[in-house]
Amino acid sequence: MRKPYLRQAPGRELADYPEGTAYTAGFLTAKNAGWRSVRPVLRAEKCVLCLRCYLHCPDGTVYESGGALAFDYDFCKGCGLCAKICPLGAIEMETEGA
């Protein structure tokens, strides 16, 4: 799976910045995890991999990995759409740091 990924941010010197207005696509320098107050947690015994959660995630942070569902906690914002859309109740939102 290809997607934008985290890299070292350019330095603070003028020479580190592009001369034109174009730059590398898919260049991420910061995570979104800090936005989250609740996190999705999978109840694997209930999941049948229908992937509705994956399809509806606005951030693309739900994915299938090795026959099981996984979350990219670096970029999940904790919106809860995946838990809401799951017809089987296989995703629960848990408070962060609880």
Partner: peptide, 8 residues
């Protein structure tokens, strides 16, 4: 991916 849109 990795955008800064509001949650949801």
């Amino acid at each position: 991916f990795g955008h800064k849109a509001c949650a949801g």
